[in-house]
Design a protein around this nucleic acid. Structure first.
Length: 293
DNA sequence: AAGCGAACCTGGCTGC
DNA sequence: TGCAGCCAGGTTCGCT
């Protein structure tokens, strides 16, 4: 589920609940998510206060008063919810209305003001780790991570330099987190449509042979920024699993122009094309052959 | 080196 | 209604 806009939506929901609060009790209900939870996970969190909650690509980083940072990734189905009071073991309206199951509540953070923050993840592709805050950007998984697409680093010139000479398809290059970090299948499809570029075009085709940006590079960097900003503004995309921390859905799925619209007419005015679906490196790509030659 | 498929795990939807 | 099969927002590994 969660690409950058969904993770940013979750961050904005969690921030007011977590920052400045102390974790009085932590429940760890299973030994692992995608990876084993760190040694002493509960005892290293209990008593710590959260100083800030940041996002890098699709990762959330909670800086703690203990000089450690809790790093969290939502995988495909991870979600957080914030609740007050009530009994933990009693499935509330949240489950009935959004399909999440209490069996997949894996970590619960109890805060000193009585709120609790619960991590739920059916497929357990998510991840939590604890790292020393000092120098965290130089440790995995951040060391090899590409540029932040909403940060100042992304523009046409930088994108052209990153992609120059690469024969891999644009689709694959944009999904490669070592180049640009935070895009996933939905927003790559949507950005390529807006930039009118084929997902099958070689990544290097947005640059000259010397790595200078062609107009395509400017269009692509602008489309990436626009689609991400627009998605964040409406709380991301909810297909099945993504929810804000209060359980409400995002709305960007209503604005998809190509993603999951196979066979439907292209939305470009006067275009008579249909949205096609192809498979690239095992993932569906949706695009209009007429608009994205 | 790069690119593809499979793997991780569960649930939801489709079609027979 | 039941069940098999396919698909899914991410990441990583291993084999060409």
């Amino acid at each position: 589920m969660p690409e950058l806009p969904e993770v940013e939506t979750v961050r904005r929901g969690l921030e007011p609940a977590l920052v400045g609060r102390r974790m009085t009790r932590v429940e760890q209900r299973r030994p692992d998510l995608r990876f084993p939870l760190p040694e002493g996970f509960v005892s290293r969190l209990e008593g710590a206060s959260v100083l800030s909650l940041d996002r890098r690509a699709k990762y959330l980083l909670a800086r703690l008063s203990t000089d450690e940072t809790l790093v969290m990734h939502l995988g495909m189905t991870g979600r957080f919810r914030v609740e007050a009071g009530g009994r933990l073991d009693e499935p509330g309206a949240f489950y009935q209305s959004h399909g999440a199951q209490a069996a997949h509540d894996h970590v619960v953070l109890h805060l000193d003001d009585g709120l609790r923050v619960t991590y739920n993840d059916a497929r357990r592709f998510g991840f939590m780790g604890l790292y020393p805050s000092d120098g965290i950007e130089r440790t995995p998984p951040f060391a090899a991570m590409g540029i932040e697409p909403l940060g100042p680093a992304l523009d046409g010139a930088v994108l052209a330099r990153l992609f120059a000479g690469r024969r891999t398809p644009l689709k694959a290059a944009l999904l490669d987190q070592r180049l640009v970090a935070g895009l996933g299948n939905i927003y790559v499809c949507e950005a390529l449509f807006r930039a009118r570029l084929s997902p099958q075009a070689p990544a290097g085709s947005i640059a000259t042979s010397t790595g200078r940006p062609r107009a395509k590079a400017l269009a692509l960097s602008g489309a990436i920024r626009a689609v991400l900003e627009e998605a964040i503004a409406v709380g991301g995309s909810t297909l099945r699993d993504h929810a804000r921390v209060d359980g409400s859905a995002g709305a960007f799925q209503e604005r998809f122009r190509v993603y999951d619209r196979e066979g439907e007419p292209c939305v470009t005015p006067a275009c008579r094309g249909l949205v096609h679906r192809i498979v690239q490196s095992g993932r569906s790509s949706f695009y209009c052959r007429d608009c994205q030659p």
